[in-house]
Simulated scan of single mutants.
Amino acid sequence: MNQDDLFIAEDNPQKQIVIVAMTGHMLLDFAGPADVFNCANRALELRGRTDGYRVLVASPNANKQVTNSAGIEITCTYSVMEVSGPIDTLLIAGSNDVQNLDDPAYQDFYHWLSAVDQHTRRVGSVCAGAFALAKAGLLNGKRATTHWDRSRQLQKNYPLIQVDPNPFYTRDGKIYTSGGVSSGIDLALALVEEDHGKEIAMQVARRLVFYLNRPGFQVQFGNLLPVYDHQNIAEKIRSWMIGHLHEPLDVVRLADHMNMSPRNFTRVFHKQTGIPPAKYVEKLRVEAARKYLEDTDSSLEEIAERCGLGGLVSMRRTFLRHLMVTPSDYRRAFRTSLADVIT
């Protein structure tokens, strides 16, 4: 194999971007960022510039084959360990099944990854790729994000990381992490803007019909409350609470429904759920209001009353606290698909 094919010469103005596709990924995990960098090349070429990117999609294993979550077999031209450098930016597109990351076939990759940041300007991850960075020790003591549904697991498995499930992407020094799937596009656009300025990044975003800075936070896409085991006290009382959200739901009433003393109910509830009853009730009200905003044309006043969120001011304040968005903005972003285009 010609080694000149594996890296860019030192005097080449292009920055080499290497995207590692882990088995079990979604195609958008690596295809989204790759398209951003390739579109940036086009925008730069139109200005007569040659200082764009060379984009390589590589495998983490020696056989150069990975399988995506839809069962599509992908044969990469290179294994990432064959790319001898210089790598400007390394992105790890993560697996949907983080258990795949423990595959013994990845051990050489993790050994290589643990030292790569010494020779690479930027190292980042897309979605569950954060688990690979964490396994290689690159996230210890750093702020990071991942898909909102994996954030608790990342924090539990790697307690030295400051996991923030809210942003679409984060930066801590030379380490960049992004959230769920399409957030890799957000991150790639930010990297293009960092390299070539807002105007080039904006051209790419427009071409992809995407926001340069997408409004909102990951928390708006996730569930405020986890699914508890059916034996959990929260699950035992959840259905009854949903039917009475428009009524006062203080601890005394909740405990009475469960035939428990308020003190014992509060103790058991907090122990089994990790949160006090009042906070659970508030989150349940917000979850119910979200559904009404997504699926109905009910007025904000009706929804606030139906879900026990008080008036408009109170509901707005509660939404901002939990979802970082107002109810009206949430409705515009998440209302039922095609609701505004069907005639």
Rank of each mutant, 00 (worst) to 15 (best):
D195E: 07
S178E: 09
H196G: 01
G184D: 02
R207G: 05
G180W: 00
V163N: 08
R207M: 11
F210M: 07
E193F: 02
D186M: 09
V192Q: 05
G173W: 10
A188G: 04
G197C: 04
M202K: 08
P165D: 06
K198E: 14
V209Q: 11
P165S: 03
F168D: 03
E199Y: 05
V204W: 12
G173M: 11
D195I: 03
K174F: 00
A190Q: 13
G179P: 04
V163Y: 10
G184Q: 02
A205F: 12
G180I: 00
N166C: 11
P167V: 06
S183P: 02
G197K: 02
M202T: 13
L187C: 11
T170A: 14
N166S: 13
E193M: 14
E194G: 01
T177Q: 04
V204G: 08
F210D: 07
F168P: 05
L189A: 08
R207H: 11
F210Y: 15
K174N: 06
S178A: 15
G173P: 09
Y176R: 12
F168S: 02
D172H: 14
P165I: 01
V204N: 08
R207V: 04
E193P: 01
Y169I: 01
A190C: 07
R171H: 11
S178V: 03
Y169P: 00
D164S: 09
V181T: 05
T177Y: 10
D164A: 09
A201H: 14
V204K: 11
P167Q: 09
I185S: 02
D172M: 10
L208G: 01
L212S: 03
F210K: 12
L189G: 12
M202E: 08
V204P: 07
V192A: 03
D164R: 08
Y176W: 15
D186I: 10
G179L: 04
T170R: 14
M202A: 10
D172E: 11
F168E: 06
R206S: 11
V163C: 09
G173I: 14
S178H: 05
R206I: 07
Y176G: 03
G180V: 03
E194S: 12
S183W: 04
T170Q: 15
I200R: 11
H196M: 07
I175Y: 05
G179E: 06
E193K: 14
A188L: 08
D195Y: 08
V181L: 12
N166R: 13
D186A: 12
Y176F: 15
Y211T: 01
L208R: 14
D164E: 14
S182H: 05
L187M: 15
A205T: 04
Q203P: 00
G173E: 10
G180K: 00
L189Y: 11
Y211I: 01
L191Q: 12
D172T: 06
G184I: 06
D172K: 09
R171W: 02
D172Q: 08
D172S: 15
G197W: 05
S183L: 05
P165F: 06
A201V: 10
T170D: 08
